[in-house]
Amino acid sequence: MAQQFTWDHTVDFVDDLKQAEQAFADQGLTASYGGKHVGHGTENSLAYFGDNYLEFLTLYSRKEALAETPQRGQIFHDAGELLPEFEGFYRPALHVHGIEAAAERLRSKGVELGEIVPGNRTTANGEEIRWQLLWLLGDDHGLRYPFVIDWDADEATQLERYENSGLLHRHPLGEVSTRRAIFEVPDPAGISAHWADLFDLERTHGTDDNGREYYDLAVGGGRDWRFVKGDYNGITELQYTVPAGKSFDVTIGKARYRSVTD
């Protein structure tokens, strides 16, 4: 049976967490401080959209971040190298059950991997949450690969954790759900086919209302990653569904967040 990969969250590098939180608040969205990755040089704020969430990430210590190796702490090392000059989407995370099997699959496809790295934190109510991370090293024609996370919990348990965090269903705008990520890449057909093969994702092809050709990968929960032709070579936009009559459109650095009707 093929390993199932589903879209877990997306990391957005920002220079100032408070400014990012305020930009969301101005549009009726809630992002709240998550905490420091002690010893790794970064800290975050989180915005939850059902079982898919957004992580604003910034530096508190460039020295600590740069001391990390790509094999064990790629995200921290990259934050140290890229911030503050680069402010935009970094890369998404794919969730799996059984990260060792996922690693075997990816190795069999010829991808260079870092180590499987354990992590944990204790919530405000005293619950210890554990996870494991796997970094895909290198890139796909300049496009950063997703990273892989295993929360060591089934979907119901994980959603309950999000509920207990107090951040679900707290957007003043109402119920907001993640719908799509837009990847602008030089070769949408080739890259989407490679990622579909790597992660065993269903791939479809179409044309949007503006006549632009796209390739979609189904990443679970009715969400997709849409690949379109462009020079940026990364995620440019996250799209969301919102209650009838509501809308938002906010840009932070190179990252755009907006509501859509489809």
Rank of each mutant, 00 (worst) to 15 (best):
Ala189Thr: 02
Leu159Phe: 14
Gly211Ile: 09
Glu202Cys: 00
Tyr257Thr: 08
Gly98Cys: 12
Leu94Ser: 01
Thr122Asp: 12
Gln4Tyr: 02
Arg144Val: 04
Asp8Cys: 03
Ile252Trp: 05
Phe227Lys: 00
Pro146Trp: 01
His97Val: 10
Gly230Val: 05
Arg223Pro: 00
Pro118Glu: 12
Phe5Leu: 05
Asn210Ala: 10
Glu237Pro: 03
Glu87Lys: 10
Leu167Phe: 08
Ala20Glu: 12
Thr157Asp: 15
Glu175Cys: 06
His40Ser: 08
Pro188Ser: 05
Glu81Leu: 14
Gln132Ala: 15
His141Glu: 12
Asp197Gln: 10
Gly88Leu: 02
Ala153Met: 07
Gly88Asp: 14
Leu54His: 13
Val38Thr: 15
Ser32Arg: 12
Arg130Gln: 06
His141Asp: 11
Leu54Glu: 09
Pro186Phe: 03
Lys246Leu: 03
Asp154Leu: 14
Asp15Phe: 05
Arg212Pro: 10
Gly221Cys: 04
Glu160Trp: 04
Leu168His: 07
Phe24Ile: 03
Gly190Met: 03
Trp135Ala: 11
Thr157Ser: 10
Thr42Tyr: 05
Val117Arg: 15
Glu87Ala: 08
Arg179Gln: 15
Ser108Gly: 11
Gly211Leu: 13
Phe49Trp: 06
Tyr232Ile: 15
Glu64Asp: 15
Ala181Val: 04
Ala102Ile: 03
Ile235Pro: 03
Thr261Glu: 14
Thr207Asp: 06
Gly34Trp: 15
Asp26Cys: 01
Thr207Glu: 08
Arg223Ala: 00
Val219Pro: 00
Ser192Asn: 05
Leu82Ile: 03
Gly230Met: 04
Lys229Ala: 12
Tyr48Leu: 15
Val185Ala: 01
Lys36Thr: 07
Val14Lys: 10
Ala255Trp: 02
Gln22Leu: 08
Asp197Ile: 00
His171Trp: 09
Asp139Tyr: 11
Ser259His: 07
His37Gly: 03
His95Val: 07
Phe89Asn: 01
Ile149Tyr: 03
Gly206Ala: 02
Phe24Glu: 14
Gly174Asn: 10
Pro146Lys: 02
Val148Ala: 08
Gly73Ile: 12
Glu128Phe: 10
Phe248Glu: 06
Trp195His: 14
Leu134Phe: 08
Gly190Val: 04
Glu213Tyr: 03
Arg161Glu: 08
Thr6Glu: 00
Val11Asn: 11
Phe5Arg: 02
His205Trp: 05
Thr251Val: 13
His95Gln: 13
Ala103Ile: 05
Leu59Lys: 03
Leu134Arg: 07
Arg180Phe: 01
Leu94His: 01
Thr42Arg: 08
Pro186Ala: 13
Ile182Thr: 11
Glu237Trp: 09
Gly138Leu: 02
Val96Ala: 07
Ser61Lys: 15
Leu83Asp: 07
Thr178Glu: 05
Phe147Ile: 03
Trp225Phe: 13
His194Gln: 09
Pro70Asn: 15
Glu81Pro: 04
Leu94Met: 13
Gln27Gly: 11
Leu173Val: 01
Thr236Leu: 04
Tyr214Glu: 02
Gln19Tyr: 09
Lys254Phe: 12
Ile252His: 08
Glu202Ser: 00
Lys109Gln: 14
Tyr162Arg: 11
His141Ser: 11
Tyr90Leu: 06
Tyr215Phe: 14
Gly80Leu: 01
Thr241Met: 08
Trp131His: 10
Pro146Asp: 07
Pro92Cys: 11
Tyr60Val: 02
His205Gly: 00
Asp200Glu: 13
Asp224Leu: 00
Asp51Thr: 07
Gly174Ala: 08
